[in-house]
């Protein structure tokens, strides 16, 4: 039985308007696509598309400028928070966000992001953590798990010589300038819905002028991990979440009144 009369059925889900018709370059199963869609949905819900400026970083994340139908600038590797700072200070009425991966944010761009958070810049950062440099072929990043094999740690990450993974959200939660720091995951529908609420909350933080907001999103990278999308999701659940616990690390008290 097929229902074909629109008066008899409701549309539960369709592509958000802010997503362009482009076919993404992401590998099958990559959760970057989910993150892009969630940001598009939230911007549509807030009706802020004409007042939002995105700052694309370097890595797989850069092509978000082709996938969201809105204004974008692109920053040099790691420098998205610095560029977002400039954009926001010149145009304080716009909603400015950066979209960065872990190679971009936690490695080459660690200086910019830490100081943007410490200054309490009124920008929003979306940080996709998939434990490697995805675009360049899966090299080790600061967030790579102990023992994880990558193209530049072929015997697994050895913490004796290569150090321990950086827990970015925990680190930023200690900075006075940060107002909203949370970690979410994109591995199942429940967590995806929670991630969407966090993205909304981060934008609300900025709209209220409360200061720096960041949402860390745990993601999968099936191609570079050498797994299927389904086993990648299991690996994220079993290996990453124990090391990178999900939760709210810092929430400004003024945000408590917002119910989503």
């Amino acid at each position: 039985m097929v229902l074909d009369n629109c008066e008899l059925e409701t549309t539960v889900f369709e592509r958000p308007d802010t997503l362009t018709g482009a076919n993404t370059h992401y590998c099958p199963g990559c959760t970057h696509g989910i993150a892009n869609r969630l940001i598009a949905e939230v911007i549509d819900e807030m009706g802020m598309r004409e007042k939002t400026i995105g700052v694309a970083s370097v890595g797989c994340s850069v092509f978000i400028y082709n996938y969201l139908n809105m204004d974008f600038v692109q920053a040099p590797h790691g420098r998205a928070p610095a560029m977002a700072t400039g954009v926001k200070r010149v145009l304080p009425d716009r909603m400015v966000f950066t979209y960065q991966g872990d190679g971009d944010l936690a490695s080459i761009g660690m200086t910019e992001i830490v100081h943007a958070a410490a200054r309490g810049e009124n920008i929003t950062v979306f940080f996709l953590n998939n434990t490697n440099y995805g675009m360049t072929g899966g090299q080790m990043a600061p967030t790579t798990m102990p023992g994880q094999k990558t193209t530049s740690s072929q015997n697994g990450r050895d913490v004796e010589t290569q150090g321990y993974p950086i827990r970015v959200s925990e680190m930023f939660s200690k900075l006075d300038g940060a107002s909203y720091i949370v970690r979410r995951s994109l591995h199942d529908p429940k967590n995806i819905r929670m991630a969407k609420k966090a993205i909304r909350m981060a934008f609300e933080t900025q709209v209220r002028g409360l200061g720096f907001s960041m949402v860390e999103l745990l993601s999968i990278c099936p191609t570079n991990w050498g797994m299927t999308p389904k086993t990648s999701i299991q690996w994220l659940e079993e290996r990453m979440i124990p090391y990178y616990p999900l939760g709210d690390y810092k929430v400004h008290p003024a945000l408590a009144e917002i119910k989503l």
Partner: peptide, 13 residues
Amino acid sequence: VICPDAAITVYRE
């Protein structure tokens, strides 16, 4: 919700 490419449109009676 899980589709990474927003390829699925869902209808419910």
